[in-house]
Design a protein around this nucleic acid. Sequence first.
RNA 1: GCGGGCGUGGCGGAAUGGUAGACGCCGGGGACUUAAAAUCCCCUGAGCUUUGCUCGUGCGGGUUCGAGUCCCGCCGCCCGCACCA
Length: 842
Amino acid sequence: MSETRFDPSQADGRWQRAWDEGACFEADSSSTKPKAYVLEMFPYPSGRIHIGHVRNYTMGDVLARYKRMRGHEVLHPMGWDAFGMPAENAAMEQKVHPGAWTYQNIANMKAQLKRLGFALDWSREVATCDPSYYGHEQALFIDFYESGLVYRKESAVNWDPVDQTVLANEQVIDGRGWRSGALVEKRKLSQWFLKITHFAQDLLDGLDDLKNWPDKVKLMQENWIGKSTGLQFRFDLSDGDHVDVYSTRPDTIFGASFVAVAADHPVAQKVAEGSAEAQAFIEKCREGGTTAEELETAEKLGFDTGITAQHPLDPARQLPVYIANFVLMDYGTGAVMAVPGHDQRDFEFATKYDLPIIRVVAASAGDAAKPFDGEAETGDGILVNSGPLDGMGVSEAKAFVIGRAESEGWGEGKTVWRLRDWGVSRQRYWGTPIPFVHCDTCGVVPVPKDQLPVTLPEDVDVSIPGNPLERHPTWKHTSCPKCGGKAVRETDTLDTFADSSWYFIRFASQPKDKPFDAAEAATWLPVDQYIGGIEHAILHLLYARFWTRALKHVGKLDVAEPFASLFTQGMVTHETYSRRNEENGQPVYFNPSEVERTSDGATLKADGQPIEIGRVIKMSKSKKNVVDPDAIVDSYGADAVRWFMLSDSPPERDLPWSEAGIEGCARFVQRLWRLFGQYDAGAQGEDKALARKVHQTIAAAAGDIEGLSFNKAVARIYELTAAAEKAKPSASRSEAIRTILLLIAPMMPHLAEEAWAAMSGTGLVAEAAWPEVDEALLVDDETTLAVQVKGKLRDTLTVAKGLPKDQLEALALGSEKVQRAIDGADIRKIIVVPDRLVNIVI
RNA sequence: GCGGGCGUGGCGGAAUGGUAGACGCCGGGGACUUAAAAUCCCCUGAGCUUUGCUCGUGCGGGUUCGAGUCCCGCCGCCCGCACCA
């Protein structure tokens, strides 16, 4: 090993080729070794790999390589979530076909990933926009249809009246279309739905079995599924009609002061027929977006219909019926009994429209007349002002009212879910065509499986708004598979969440003639470790869990849950650099590569003048605080970049990118290279302390990697490296150096291979085994004893391990510093934690 | 608005209820060098009357011999909210 520096620019590519040529990372489904399926969420091919991807894939790669060293057959695949809106946007802006744009991006990004040396099985690569993928998805969709998991119903979309097109939520800005600027309307369309609610209870119950999922993700899913129990009951209306409402708080029924219905509710529709004012109000509710956030943050508005509702338990009370914009037609019955005292939305509404706010729950009977402090009280208590319920607790009163409603026949206890069925229709080109035709005589008919895939037409004009499939001259015209008559194809495409709901199954098994082989898929599934962003905590993960259940439902796959362990990583962040534009005061942002960072500030390289350093935030193109992985791999080599991704920040938290940090990593690569150069296979002699450190580090680093606490493993490797550098030559030191090489092999594989070859190691490190731990060397025989007086540290003593309590007490009292702190006071108590601490209480 | 999370030196962070600040970065001092780079060594939470003492983990309370860690109440920031992926 004569070179004094490790040169990644020539070594990285050489080892990457060696791994490729040896097909090192191709997974063998028929292997008898224990299997490990390590998966990172596959990327959208936006054009360039983002540093966040690098972090995600580095974590998975370390785990995959580590598992391989521990003797597992590892499946670590990669592919592309390749359908979606950005391709259509690019097509519009750059006049390039979405497919061409997407495949070019895939080629670029694949090259970028290869440069980072990830141990990926590229033989299993999939792109969801390829007919060889989405054709199978169409077959599965038809299976779901045939087993009753697919249906069509009317549902609201954002409609841009100028562009005559459906908009995604992100295309609606402040209630207006992003291109046209027109006020967006809600419009109803007949759309396709997947019956995720069929599995609501099972999706909820399944969370209990996901022991290795973060509690926060499980809690988010639980809240999203939103099981609630309550009372559905009937109000008779003054116009002779009636309205069903649902309430989770039937105990507060005597606090009801009005009834509110959604704008789309039949009662509201009926009122609108006879009232232009009501009609105008309903129109107003239709303006604005369709998101829950917009609905809930909008000012609460209501329209008094003039109708009253008969209170079911109090013959003397007639409640006004309002149409209200905060009531959702999709949840419960689309109508609520409003109890302002004990529901915050009702409280705000009642305050605005001057409706009674009645207290029916209080801390005690004596508080029955206590006024409200500007907000509703939703907590527990006892019932007051509630006739027969007075004095009951909340849950007792709930049961009582439900029982009474059921016996008297005006209502019944009911379980309601917040979870809604999954609307999968998208009125767009770049997605999986929904494989159905519409026939005038036969209705909706699935395309026969032997005619799949239904492929997207290539000759489309995406430069104008609207759905190109809809206006294509020939594509949609076809014949009915059933009667042979004229029919038109469905022009909606599937939500891209459908594509990502089963890609991990296709990775595990990819026959040509069917979506997957059940037996082969089951040898790999569930995914042992899934890694991705927290932003997918609800939708993607819930849809994938649903899809897995749906496959079981149709008898295609016998897997309960898709992902056994889940890890959600933090984002990569960077400070921003900006200057105010003198004309309009808007900040102008600069890329880090244009900026010279100094110890107390930053200047623009172009003019040498100071520049403002902004907060550390998520990297984004608009703020230009992005770094390009290719550029940093060019400068520092793949291993330094990988090491940086693993160092310092715990993986679940945000990682602030810094130039100084990556330089430190690059220095450490060279430091290791020098240390490896000192390896001497023939060195003699034992260094017990170093040997202990070596084995303690092997054990701890293994635990850290398995727990994905890479930052801790990194810190321990730094410590061991420092100890090995300081040690005098010995057999122990040689073992330490060889061990460090193996410990860093999953993290810095190129450096490890290069040094391994120089040390005359056999084969590739990629195929080497993780070092064995010598259990006997894990325990020290001495320990540092902390001595406290009244809980404050006064001295530390080095003592032999395993001393009895009375000896530790005596040693502690023998300390001069401790005696000074006690200062002759009476000792009341002495607490001894063996091998750790003595606390003298005075 | 609803749901979820996070908060520790100049910075990233470490710490089974038991020595707060491991490890890294930045900064300071020194060695080597004609010089620089590289490398190596030492120092580096704040304050003070500096053998040592006091304060210190977003803020205010509480439990405990002992709280960054547990409990209650706030503040700030971040993520998700069903057509972004």
